[in-house]
């Protein structure tokens, strides 16, 4: 999987040689362009998913213990 990550990152880099100037970044700087838009809400969603699904953790990792096995 790490090799695949590097490969996809390289493809994204190669496909995006356009230069975006600072004055063109109005939309990019909006809160809603951030990932996640709301980190606290994302944490809550990740916690719910971790208690019900087997593929949780990773990027959406939450603190240990949920009491809801």
């Amino acid at each position: 999987m790490p090799k695949l990550f590097v490969l996809i990152a390289a493809v994204v880099l190669a496909a995006s040689c356009t230069s975006v100037e600072p004055w063109e970044r109005e939309r990019l700087s909006h809160d809603c362009m951030q990932v996640p838009v709301d980190a606290d809400q994302a944490r809550t969603e990740a916690k719910t998913e971790a208690t019900r699904e087997g593929a949780a953790g990773g990027i959406q990792r939450t603190g240990g213990g949920c009491g809801c096995n």
Partner: peptide
């Protein structure tokens, strides 16, 4: 990575 003024691409990898 910023692709253009309206588009950003993200890629995440996680190991645990």
């Amino acid at each position: 990575h910023i692709i253009n003024p309206q588009l950003v691409a993200h890629l995440g990898w996680d190991f645990e």
